[in-house]
Design a protein around this nucleic acid. Structure first.
Length: 377
DNA sequence: AAGCTATGCAACCGCAGACTT
DNA sequence: TAAGTCTGCGGTTGCATAGCT
């Protein structure tokens, strides 16, 4: 266990008298007992970096490396900066081969495609774009790309509303709305690993990506179904106990799979804390489901991700109950990305820090891909 | 030219998880 | 195994500047 004297305020004796502590004393005690601040905030400089600071940091890291300890780094160099600040400056600005601005159409598509698939996991997205930082991509998405896509999305929706208004049969409206999902700009993005983007290196893993993109209705449906399926919505108990260890094992889902999700819901009584099951249509209240979903996917995929997450939690509770109240180990799998340790590394990683100290980002992406039920070969 | 608003981007913050002792 | 420490991530903030009135 490491002990930093700097964490202890010299003003506070270790055996303080039992009087009401001042704020300073309280903070010092907290520092003693719990998590220490990463740096002495009173003595660190904040704000933009000067060229001199940049030069010092760059020169030191190029010569000695980070030493695996960002906290100690600024002291060694003589910088009055927080270690985290140094790390950020290096990763986002000073390290070699960083590209700033000037995102190409190709990069736009990659970002959008991945955002739709995995949400705001910028580090994973950045790992697929050599020279780009997660911060850069995040900023680019928030300031430009999102607006760009929203503009296109609105046009699509307006055109679609006109088409749908001519269709009076409910069934047809539903089918049409589903097509809207697929037709929307975001969904139709060509998957970045397709041959069309030949200049972008294909991820090389044991399992190569083939159909990650949501470029057809089946993929989209599978995305949703598998996300739900992944939390054992199916009545197939055998399948419930067998998490997919390989995306190849994800069964192709029959067209009738949606009706199986119209099932039962756990109702918790506030008074007795008992749980009962009531038959329900889980899409109740989602009469506009397809278009709602489209909006989530196209306008705020991250929100969709969270929405699906709440689905997960709801379903997990069913899982627990269906086991007679015993904890079900599989429920963890449905909320985490699972154990990735057995998966292989891919050479397709950004070069810095040995892929951020060995985190196989594209493997994470693969896991997520698997999680979302994307098809792979 | 001055003031206001919108935009872009660098940097900060807090949290979670991994690692270490 | 528990608790301290460090790193990395995503969300947010604040400043500089461009564009508009």
């Amino acid at each position: 266990m490491r002990f930093h004297h700097s964490n202890l305020s010299p003003l506070v004796p270790l055996l303080a008298p039992c009087t009401r502590p001042t704020n300073t004393q309280r903070e010092a005690r907290i520092a003693e007992m719990g998590r220490a601040p990463c740096c002495d905030k009173a003595n660190v400089k904040k704000g933009p970096w000067s060229p001199e600071e940049d030069a010092k940091l760059k020169a030191y890291i190029e010569q000695h490396g980070t030493g695996g300890n960002w906290i100690a780094l600024p002291q060694k160099i003589g910088l009055k900066r927080c270690g985290k600040s140094c790390r950020l400056r290096w990763l986002n600005y000073l390290r070699p081969n960083i590209k700033h601005g000037g995102f190409s159409e190709e990069e736009d598509n990659i970002i959008c495609s991945l955002y739709v698939s995995i949400g705001s996991r910028w580090s994973i997205i950045a790992a697929q774009l050599p020279g780009r930082t997660d911060n850069d991509i995040k900023n680019y998405w928030n300031t430009r790309l999102k607006k760009k896509l929203l503009g296109k999305q609105r046009k699509e929706q307006q055109a679609q509303v006109r088409r749908v208004s001519n269709n009076h049969q409910k069934q047809d409206v539903k089918r049409e709305s589903e097509n809207l999902i697929v037709a929307s700009e975001v969904i139709n993005l060509v998957p970045y690993w397709s041959a069309e983007y030949s200049s972008v290196p294909m991820p090389v893993t044991d399992v190569s990506f083939q159909h990650f993109g949501l470029n057809n209705q089946t993929s989209l449906r599978n995305l949703m179904v598998n996300k739900l399926e992944g939390v054992r919505f199916s009545s197939d108990q055998q399948q419930q106990q067998q998490p997919y260890t390989n995306a190849c094992e994800i069964p192709s889902l029959p067209d009738q799979v949606f009706p199986t999700m119209v099932n039962h819901v756990a109702v918790v009584s506030n008074e007795t804390n008992s749980v009962t099951y009531q038959p329900t249509n889980i899409f109740e209240g989602f009469e506009n489901f397809p278009s709602d979903f489209c909006e989530l996917v196209c306008v705020n995929p991250h929100q969709m991700d969270r929405s699906m997450g709440s689905f997960n939690y709801g379903v997990e509770s069913m899982d627990v109950m269906s086991n007679g109240g015993s904890t079900n180990t599989t429920s963890t799998e449905s909320t985490s990305w699972g154990d990735m340790s057995s998966l292989v590394y891919s050479p397709l990683v950004s070069d810095y820090e040995g892929c951020r100290q060995g985190i196989p980002h594209d493997v994470v992406a693969f896991e997520e891909c698997k999680y979302f039920g994307m098809q792979m070969q």
